[in-house]
């Protein structure tokens, strides 16, 4: 996935996580989840994700 695609996917995950935390009465999780989202973007952008053998690429699908 492209960096932009990753960012969009993580933003969607973050929205869902924040809604869930709010619903569970844990609004204090917001800054922590936002920090985690930044770390997730970094993790997904790492170049080793591109070198995993036989990993499907968007163009293959």
């Amino acid at each position: 996935m492209t960096d932009e695609g990753n960012r969009v996917a993580v933003e969607a995950w973050l929205r869902a996580a924040l809604e869930d935390a709010e619903r569970r009465g844990l609004p204090e999780l917001k800054p922590l989840l936002e920090g985690l989202a930044q770390a997730t973007i970094t993790l997904r952008a790492a170049d080793w994700n591109d070198t995993v053998p036989h990993a499907p690429r968007p163009a293959d699908q």
Binding site: W13, L29, L32, L33, L36
Partner: peptide, 9 residues
């Protein structure tokens, strides 16, 4: 809170 955060990974 940190333990709760881990449940979202």
């Amino acid at each position: 809170l940190r333990l709760e955060m881990g449940r979202y990974v």
